[in-house]
Simulated assay, not measured.
Amino acid sequence: MSNELEAFIEYITVTKALSQKSVAAYKSDLLFFEEKLQKPLIELDTKLLFTALEAYDNKRTLNRKLSSINAFFDFCYKSQFLEEKNKIRLSKIPKLLPKFLSYEDIQNGLALIDRSTWIGLRDYALILFLYASGARISEALELGRSDIEGEWLHIRHAKGDKERIVPLAAVAEKAIEAYLQASGFETEHLWCNYRGGKLSRISAYKITQKYLGVSPHVLRHSYATSLIRGGADLRVVQELLGHASLLTTQIYTHIQKQDLKDTVNVYHPITKEQL
């Protein structure tokens, strides 16, 4: 690792106090370029960088790596390692509507679960919980039993190490109580595997895939979509989801606009006129 890169990693770790995951992502991205091209990153020109990026067809992956490079170059310029500030233009990504399920879809999936066993009660409770809280699966799996305080959920291991408190629907709380009582495990983990240990991410994925045919993250999108369609304020949804920026939450306004368009098409008489 070059001296400049080492200084950058120390800067984002200590001064910027980024999370361990963010630091690891930056380090992985930037080391990739130094190791692939066998030169200090600060000596790479734009042509060499794009040569290294040719293997990436996915625009989101490409932009993440370019963002890491730009952050590094910005640090080097401010630290006077570079005389000129380099910045590489990011690839434009179309705003895609996130996949989501309707409440009816989720109810249909829940109806498939055999709740005569504690495993079935757990699967039922987990799906209800994810839809009722909008929690990321990484946040959900780190929860302890004490993090549910009545009708409130305390998410302590949120993205960016930012805690938040969100209301939890009574039906989800009741399902969780039934699952915990039936499991019989004496553990602080909220979501347990069949041995009583902490449920893994892959196991959680298998549960939602089995009954709903989607990943756990789709339930987070479904939560946000239901709120927006119900008329919730965008900034309230931002707070509930734990988004650092309102720009991240604004992708759900596409759903609202589509609902408005559908309403006009159904109810306005002029849309029935033939040209």
Rank of each mutant, 00 (worst) to 15 (best):
D262Q: 13
F8A: 02
L53E: 08
T13F: 04
E186H: 14
A17N: 15
P216R: 00
K162V: 11
Y205P: 10
H221P: 01
A140N: 05
C76W: 01
P216T: 02
T187Q: 05
D233I: 02
R164V: 12
Y77M: 10
S68C: 09
T15Q: 14
E83H: 10
L66A: 03
Q38C: 13
R229Q: 15
P98M: 07
V237P: 08
L246F: 02
H268P: 00
L66G: 10
F81A: 11
R220I: 02
T46Q: 13
E43H: 12
V236K: 08
N63D: 09
A55T: 14
L168N: 07
V214R: 03
R235C: 12
I251N: 10
D105F: 12
R235K: 14
L168G: 01
Y211G: 06
L199F: 12
L247D: 15
E84H: 13
F75K: 08
D259I: 04
T253N: 09
T51R: 14
E35N: 15
N70Q: 09
P94R: 13
I88N: 04
E10P: 00
F100G: 07
L30E: 00
E142Y: 05
T253G: 10
D233T: 05
F129V: 00
N63Q: 06
H268T: 04
K47I: 14
F81I: 08
Y211M: 10
T117D: 08
K162H: 11
I113L: 03
I9H: 09
W152D: 12
T46V: 02
A169M: 12
P40I: 07
R220Q: 09
F8D: 07
L48W: 03
K47R: 13
L62V: 04
A25W: 06
W118Q: 09
I9P: 03
D161Y: 14
E142H: 07
G144N: 13
